[in-house]
Nucleic acid binder design. Sequence first.
DNA 1: CTGTTAGCGCATTCAC
DNA 2: GTGAATGCGCTAACAG
Lengths: 327, 327
Amino acid sequence: MATIRDVSKLAGVSIATVSRVLNRNGYVHTETEKKVLLAIKELNYTPNFVARSLSNKKTSTIGLIVPDITNPFFPELARAVEDVMQLYGYTIILCNSDEEPGKEKQYVEVLKQKYIDGFILASNGLPLYDVKNLDVPVVVVDRGIEPTIPTVVSQNRKGARMATEYLLECGCKKIGHIRGPKTVMNANERCEGYLDLVRQADWFDSSLIVDGNYETNRAFEATVRLLRENPDLDGIVAGNDLMAIGALKAARFLNRSVPDALSIIGFDGIAMGRITYPELTTIAQPIYDMGAIAARMLIKLIENQPLETIYHQLEVQLVEGGTTRKV
Amino acid sequence: MATIRDVSKLAGVSIATVSRVLNRNGYVHTETEKKVLLAIKELNYTPNFVARSLSNKKTSTIGLIVPDITNPFFPELARAVEDVMQLYGYTIILCNSDEEPGKEKQYVEVLKQKYIDGFILASNGLPLYDVKNLDVPVVVVDRGIEPTIPTVVSQNRKGARMATEYLLECGCKKIGHIRGPKTVMNANERCEGYLDLVRQADWFDSSLIVDGNYETNRAFEATVRLLRENPDLDGIVAGNDLMAIGALKAARFLNRSVPDALSIIGFDGIAMGRITYPELTTIAQPIYDMGAIAARMLIKLIENQPLETIYHQLEVQLVEGGTTRKV
DNA sequence: CTGTTAGCGCATTCAC
DNA sequence: GTGAATGCGCTAACAG
């Protein structure tokens, strides 16, 4: 690979001049610029990013930390992040944290040693304290932590309210909730949204809230138990689509017909929900937008441009599928 | 951030010595080593990877190029790659190529400038010539190109034969095939496998092969047409699970009951196939293993260790679901 | 065993 | 406008 020195020799100028035309800064005579450009083409020269990074302290690469790329929510997010990052010449390092603080912290350390320019954090393992003291730009996605940290979330509580209200409108008389992990803030918010509408109901009891850990299988088991203990349950608000799918499977397992005998509504709007039968009714988040906005924010932070809004809360939207039926 | 120089001063030794204890090479007195280690801890020093990379020409990061991480086949592959890479201290850069040669080539160029240590290529855009002249270690996954290039694939042709044979055993009298893109080698192989068993059949006609582009929607449309033109069609071998899901939707759309009036079998064994109703019968590839093996191969290539096998072809496995029924 | 020194490839003062 | 020199932080001979 040719170096800047080779170019300078061939063009008969100093490396400083080559560097100037490369980075379009400082004055340089049109003639000499031409010579340099020619030499660059001649040698098929491309600058060495690592060397540049060493003096720059910038690598044009960012870290994307997700719990598990295998969870269908995150590929879409990752795709959005990558699309805009690619547009701006950044490259992205993918990290699966499994929500383990240790793994997450380790990734952060390694990437900082690699002069990463910033992070997009869609995982939850890292304590607030560490996030604030990252001394690298960071944007948090899908996990509101604190208003002082650049964040992109959607209306979790409101969405869960919408979901619950919709089931009530569908005529449900007794509605249960399958919730996500207690350690995950959006799971708590969605649970609150559900509670907002049912807390006062005469049929309500806290045993109607079961934990599905945001997973299909866990939700399946939880739903089976829930339905056995509450034969009169006729509605389920799931904390995410994966769990709604688990609930749907459980209903089929117990021969409860959906939506006739049981209504189910999910949360997220992942593509998977479109291939179940019946298709999932759900509260859709604008997943792609969340990723794209987060990426744009991070770029601004990195490039020291002002951020108009530091806390983005995006709208959710009810998508009617076949797991519910309006009366 | 502290540098190696700070450490050397605090420890009262030269930077060379510090470097030695850091990289455990060369002799160093136990006493001095202790002093150095102490200083490192004292200053909370961590080496700067970029500087190291500049003299090393190694970055401990590899590029993973996939067509689209949003396609559910790839997250699982990516997860496997990441898991083993993480084990060996490598970090992975994710690239979506959309199968576009231009995008792919651009990624390769950029990453080479960044001193990437190697590539795992699960995408198809790059012409063979370019892959061979990458001058960086590369392992190709899921897309056999040439026996001289380190490769991990599964038994595509055999798998398709198994699929077709299975439908025949299920009593199907006329079987169609929804194939993937002609530009993708495994799509061609699977098509061949299908042909191996039906080419000689009296009912066979090349119009029974339709293109679904490996996408659910395209397969849906293709299947609708196929079924309308061939009312007596009673079996479909889909080139992948996404298309099998499209076929399943089409069957429902046309009120053809599955598996009673129509049998469907997919290929891949993605998790999505487990949430359809009925669950997909499919030829499962060991996706995770493919990624893990590819990663291990790449590491060996990078670290100049010998490769026992350069071409891995993994076994596929028939997974019986509900979209077929054995008579 | 340990220190000195010369790169790695580029950006960036500071003179000219 | 342009070039020489220095530094980014670390590795790797090469001397001692």
